[in-house]
Design a protein around this nucleic acid. Structure first.
Length: 485
RNA sequence: GGCGGCAUAGCCAAGUGGUAAGGCAGCGGUCUGCAAAACCGCCAUUCUCCGGUUCAAAUCCGGAUGCCGCCUCCA
């Protein structure tokens, strides 16, 4: 597999550190609000990465943390009249609900910052001991950025540029404005923990250094997160870990691109974010997941309602074909006959190409292109009566369905039985458009009665009425089926 | 101010040296009582613009324009 390494600024062949195993850490959320689509993207991207590595046969140990102590959580706690623990718990539960709807697998280990205070205290002590950190008069502890070599490599900037461009308010307490906090002395009323330097709490970057070392060891294979974490979070994390554990910290740094709204980054600070639960009220979670997979993970992705509707259409098309295959395979035994070797060959080619796309820096957009290739091939073959009825045809249909399932397990989509999923989409769509499905059923039934009486004029009148609602009726051998156009 | 990214058809989008995947929409055909779905065919001589390198460039280099991001919490 080839993966883009932010540290090297290029795609690299993925060579794992330990035979057959991959150790991977991804920065999770700070639990102080509902997750938005940006969080969804990050989770989907790394979920697919884990699933694909497992598909390739690696034993993956995947750690994703929760930041449950932080300024923003403390602020939220004050606003909501809760403890910061309660705030964090509330939003961690919401995270599980939302990500569950997106079919995100749980990480193997999901550590929380507050459960690792001792590890962080020890790490801070170690950095002090090694001379990489210092205590200020206020009792805060800072990391000496200039002391560590290679600072700025990850985010692609040098120390002098950083200083020139700094917009942070000057802090007289720091030896150097670049230094960042490892430990913050507690202010009155704040949640705090005891330490050799008095009551306080850890700085944000510290938890990932402490927890990744604890659960994965140093160095480990992959560290992931959103692009906005590259600086300062990952840069600082890397500095700390390198200083504390001597040497290489992470082999591959992987960062996903942003979700944008009207060409602007979706973010908390801009306030232009759409939460996952907002989307789930109107769309199936799989539609959102599918949409996120239609762009390469490192490109910016523009979110819009239109884009979501298109994703829904595309997904519907795939599920239609899946349903058709499922239904056909339920039918009678096949007969001997033609081998359909050309179709077989085309199918195998698609399988190879799908894998190549995924191998090449997780190109899910391209991989989805081959899914549509499979859909087209399946539909073309399903049109042929002799194919449907013969044994080699059935085997191929079975294999195509199997491929769809296998790919679906990696991408985290196409996993529901076709008809049930299509029904769910229809229900979501009705809800979105305020349409009562029962009323539609009645109209369709009336039309069918008219048709039986060969009263095509009446039947067409009902078709027209339905069309005005955006609904099409399909007359199939098994009776009429309606859906949105 | 510093650093980085992006620009592909009406829309979305893949594509880092070998002659433009895929989806949506549109057009023609098959099928159909009429339709829909599905299938077949058509739909970018061209990848923001201007130069350069090369037998060969959407892809590499230089420049211009536009948009975005990071440098402050942010997935």
């Amino acid at each position: 597999m080839i993966i883009y390494n932010t540290l090297k600024r290029q795609k690299e062949r993925f060579i794992h550190l330990e035979p057959g195993k991959v150790r991977m850490y991804v920065c999770g959320i700070t639990a102080y609000d509902f997750c938005h689509i940006g969080h969804a993207r990050s989770c989907v991207v790394f979920d697919v990465l884990v699933r694909y590595l497992r598909f390739l046969g690696f034993k993956v140990l995947f750690v994703r943390n929760f930041t449950d102590v932080d300024d923003k959580i403390i602020k939220k706690a004050q606003e909501e009249g809760l403890s910061s623990m309660e705030v964090a718990e509330k939003y961690i539960q919401a995270f599980y609900e939302d990500m569950g709807a997106l079919n995100i697998l749980r990480a193997d280990i999901e550590p929380r910052a507050t459960e690792h205070i001792q590890e962080m205290v020890r790490l801070t002590a170690k950095l002090l001991e090694k001379g990489y950190a210092y205590v200020t008069s206020k009792g805060d502890i800072y990391f000496r950025v200039r002391k560590i070599s290679g600072y700025g490599q990850l985010s692609g900037r040098n120390i002098e540029e950083l200083q020139a461009g700094t917009r942070i308010a000057l802090d007289e307490d720091k030896e150097d404005q670049l230094d960042f906090a490892l430990w913050k002395a507690a202010k009155p009323g704040e949640t705090s923990w005891d330490s050799p330097w008095g009551a306080g709490r850890p700085g944000w970057h510290l938890e990932c250094s402490a927890m990744s070392e604890k659960y994965l060891g140093i160095p480990f294979d992959i560290h992931g997160g959103g692009q906005d974490l590259a600086f300062p979070h990952h840069e600082n994390e890397r500095a700390q870990s390198k200083a504390a554990f001597d040497g290489e910290f992470v082999k591959y740094w992987v960062h996903n691109g942003f979700v944008r709204v009207n060409a602007e980054k979706m973010s908390k600070s801009l306030g232009n974010f759409v939460t996952i639960r907002d989307i789930l009220a109107a769309y199936h979670g799989e539609v959102l997941r599918f949409f996120l997979l239609t762009n390469h993970y490192r490109s910016p992705l523009d979110f819009s309602d239109t884009a979501l509707q298109e994703a829904e259409k595309a997904l519907k098309k795939i599920y239609w074909t899946k349903s058709a295959l499922e239904k056909e395979l339920e039918k009678h035994e096949g007969t001997r006959g033609e081998q359909f070797s050309e179709a077989r060959e085309e199918f195998q080619e698609l399988t190879e190409k799908w894998n190549q796309a995924m191998q090449d820096d997780l190109n899910t957009a391209q991989a989805l292109g081959y899914v549509f290739g499979l859909v087209r091939l399946a539909n073309r073959m399903l049109d042929i009566k002799s194919f449907r009825k013969n044994e080699p045809g059935k085997t191929l249909m079975h294999d195509m369905l199997d491929a769809l399932k296998k790919w679906g397990e990696v991408l985290g989509v196409f996993l529901s039985p076709g008809p049930a999923f299509l029904e769910q989409l229809k229900i979501m769509r009705c809800r979105r458009q305020n349409i009562d499905p029962q009323a539609i059923n009645k109209m369709v039934q009336k039309r069918q009665e008219a048709r039986k009486e060969k009263n095509f004029e009446a039947a067409d009148r009902i078709r027209q009425e339905l069309a005005e609602l955006g609904i099409e009726v399909m007359d199939t051998p098994d009776g009429p089926v309606w859906d949105f156009a």
